[in-house]
Design a protein around this nucleic acid. Structure first.
Lengths: 335, 335
DNA sequence: ATGAAAGCGCTAACAC
DNA sequence: GTGTTAGCGCTTTCAT
């Protein structure tokens, strides 16, 4: 029942534990035959190294913390997939936490992770600055942080992986213009998220370029939920603001918006075109399918994992910001 | 930079490490004042126990493996939330794997988890029997398995947490009948999943009861995806099978079905009512919102976690099957 | 009430 | 090329 240890092998073969260890580690200072015998015996006794012992030796927990704002859309799951692709083969375990877009819960999660003694943290923040002090404190303990998607205050010297929110939003809004829309509503999301402002700038650039800016078309939402998307449209309709299209900060907001539009018997894209940013599977699950900026989420996770590995290996590695390309995918909601 | 250890405290206070340890563990054999001093010093030096060392001592990895069929719907995320609620406060870390409904990948995932030396595995299978041998092998190593939602072959003596697929499906199908539907199509999912058959039995019972069974209304899908749902409807339409409603095995299949219906300009629920089983947030994100059997997913995760803890504590604890109640939520898609 | 010492499984100086 | 020993951080007999 109990698993074989190096000690068992040592007894079994009448060799010292160090020789066993060396043989297992492919150390050159081991007789070829000895190594064979060790390997065979290991196989025979079903030896598998005890990761906990290794960890204790190396002083690493081989645990990475993950902090994400939500898990109801496939966004985080996709990024996670990338992270896992890289980290699992290396023996890392995860502590994944989500905060429901609530910075206070994010804070608790971070504290939880400190207690777990993680080797590093990969994080998608829910508020740009709220938890800055904790980020710093954790980094001060020599625990590297890597950010993806929503990144923090520039002042923080950390590695990040992002897409170009500004450019991609510009292009998407321009697509709306090119398909004949002139009254483009923008559902923003809370301004405490950097990308919200970046994407807004992209939007602003294009509507200015075409001279079609109207601030009544902008709706600031409180949160990031489906219902926030619904409410945004409701507000526009209540205020009798005319619009022929909507660009939403995220798929979730866009889908909430669509839901309300359809409920009010507005046709998509006939009466109102809808486009968004994110590009999760959700955009293909709704009807009509949603035009969206599709981010390479799995790739994003893989890169984030690699960045954190670099830092774990040597925390003085200079921080990098990796910018990934995103794809504009045009679907029925705007065509 | 390096974290304080018991040894540091020992030096700092000129006490033996054992006394420190005892004080920290609230052992009665420690002078009250001594304990205070230790606690203060611990606080002062920022002492936190090294989990890895504890794990090595106890022979546990404090790691739980999770195996789920997919992560694109919020289903697994919700269950995970429950698991985490219970397990994180106890210091457990996770290795979460998903297999895209592919039993071969599930197999690899299980093998990965063996390598991680997990203390237990919580699993939602993607095939009833395919990986039975691995389940047994792992259990043979004294590693407990707990199943939720989709459970394996009865022959396996394991704890499980489920809902009553048969009853709930019966009730939901009866709801369709009560709202006047007589031609109820059923989108099944692969029969290699126990729940597929259970739910089918529930469906069958009701259509038999009302004498409205017609086997042409049954579509066996290859997989569990959105597209499988679409294809099912396409097949029905191609074969010119008339139907006034659809019950689908899962939200995902139902949403795929809805998508195709809408694409064919069929009105929901006017021409075709749609209902499903699962009850994830997805059912409220589509338009029209989807009537579904809503399972207590977070609760399910919490129970699964508790069941595995029981087994970890004492693997000879008799296995339990916990059956949770599910709610029928009627939304626009059938009303 | 406190200390000394062994040991969890493994690796890595340091001998020889 | 192989063995001896110490040590990672902690708990737990066993002494005292």
């Amino acid at each position: 029942m109990k698993r074989a240890t190096i000690k068992d092998l040592s007894k079994f073969l009448s060799l010292s534990t160090s020789t066993i260890s060396r043989a297992l580690l492919n150390d050159k200072n081991v007789n070829f035959e000895t190594r064979q015998r060790v390997l065979d015996a290991a196989d025979q006794l079903g030896y598998k190294p005890n990761l906990t012992a290794l960890n204790l030796k190396s002083g690493k927990s081989k645990t990475i913390g993950i902090v994400v704002p939500e898990m109801v859309t496939p966004f985080s799951a996709k990024v996670l997939e990338g992270i896992q692709n890289v980290l699992y083969p290396l023996g890392y375990r995860l502590v994944i936490t989500q905060c429901d877009e609530n910075p206070l819960i994010e804070r608790e999660n971070l504290e939880l992770l400190e207690g777990f003694d993680v080797d590093g943290i990969i994080i998608n923040v829910c508020h740009e600055t709220f938890n800055n002090d904790i980020y710093r404190r954790i980094m001060g303990q020599g625990i590297p942080l890597v950010f993806f998607d929503r990144i923090p205050d520039k002042a923080l010297d950390v590695s990040k992986v992002i897409v170009d929110d500004y450019i991609k939003t510009s292009l998407m809004v321009e697509h709306l213009v090119e398909t004949g829309r002139k009254r483009i509503a923008y559902i923003m999301g809370p301004p405490t998220i950097r990308n919200v402002r970046e994407r807004f700038n992209g939007y602003k650039r294009i509507v200015d370029k075409y001279g079609i800016f109207d601030k009544r078309l902008i709706t600031q939402t409180e949160g990031m939920t489906f219902n926030d998307g619904r409410n945004a449209i409701q507000q526009l309709l209540d205020k009798k603001v005319e619009f022929d299209s909507v660009f939403a900060f995220s798929d979730t907001l866009a889908i909430g918006a669509m839901n309300f539009l359809l409920e009010k018997s507005l046709r998509i894209p006939g009466d109102v075109a809808v486009a968004s940013f994110s590009g999760t599977e959700l955009s293909t699950m709704v009807y009509p399918q949603l035009t969206s900026v599709q981010q390479p989420l799995t790739k994003m996770g893989e890169i984030a994992a690699e960045l954190i590995l670099e830092k774990i290996k040597d925390n003085s590695t200079p921080s990098k910001t990796v910018s990934l390309d995103a794809l504009l995918v045009f679907r029925t909601s705007t065509l």
